[in-house]
């Protein structure tokens, strides 16, 4: 990749993955599941009907960039963004969290210290919290934003769903990263080892993968989804 660290329309997608392995998760969230060959961002976007601006904005977040360039993202991208986030949720709930849960159970079988028993309880409570948060987004916040989009793009639908608002979403958007951080700290710094040495490595790497994706997930919500949805909301309210 040389010194080219930003994704552009003509960047070769496979090369990005080889340079930044976390990027593979990004493609998964977009349901991109065919061999990439030497296709460029533009070609992949065309094949999967994703707007280039959106692909590039989120893609660069996955390459460690702090701020998404959301200037060229439009209201028309809202359904894709929601789809992307829903896929992310599925990855959390059906894939990575259960993996972490299993790893902790395996550790428990190899390490009978009281601390590990506590860790398992800690994780259970934490996972409950996460589930509650993600289900809220899946069942309340995202459908609301989809409805906003429908209302904005179809003049015949009456804008009558104003009992909820994006600002409720912002308030409910609490932080599930803190406890994940704690989990990593406890694991690395404090919890005693017994025969669980190897499995702890794989648990830790799963936590790293999750942590990486969660941080970007919040950035997508804060920097792209919420401002966009707030714009649509404002426009509809003015029409009322």
């Amino acid at each position: 990749m040389g010194t080219q660290f930003y994704i552009h329309a003509d960047t070769e997608v496979a090369q990005v993955i080889l340079e930044y392995p976390h990027f593979i998760l990004f493609l998964e969230h977009f349901n991109i599941n065919t061999p990439l060959q030497s296709k460029t961002v533009a070609e992949i976007c065309q094949q999967y009907k994703i707007s280039e601006a959106l692909f590039i904005a989120i893609g660069n977040l996955y390459l460690h960039h702090e701020v998404a360039d959301s200037t060229a993202i439009t209201v028309g991208d809202l359904p894709t963004i929601i789809q992307f986030l829903n896929n992310t949720h599925r990855y959390y709930l059906d894939d990575i969290y259960p993996k972490i849960e299993r790893a902790i159970q395996e550790i428990q079988q190899l390490n009978d210290s009281k601390e590990i028993a506590l860790l398992e309880r800690f994780f259970k409570l934490y996972f409950d919290e996460v589930r509650e948060h993600l289900n809220y987004e899946l069942e309340v916040a995202h459908p609301y934003i989809e409805q906003l989009y429908q209302t904005a793009s179809d003049a015949e639908i009456a804008p009558n769903m104003m009992t909820y608002s994006v600002s409720d979403y912002v308030e409910h958007h609490d932080d599930i990263e803190e406890k994940l951080d704690d989990l990593m700290n406890l694991l690395v710094k404090y919890l005693p080892y017994q025969k669980d040495f190897h499995i702890r490595r794989s648990l830790f790497l799963n936590l790293v993968e999750l942590d990486y994706d969660l941080k970007i997930h919040s950035k997508i919500e804060e920097q792209i989804l919420i401002p966009l949805a707030q714009n649509v909301e404002q426009t509809i309210k003015r029409k009322q």
Partner: peptide, 22 residues
């Protein structure tokens, strides 16, 4: 000092260091 922020995380830390019993 500990790198741990949540109360439940700190509780595990406290047990690990024998500041409290289980």
């Amino acid at each position: 000092k500990t790198g741990i922020k949540s109360v439940s995380g700190l509780t595990i830390y406290a047990v690990t260091n024998n500041y409290v019993t289980i």
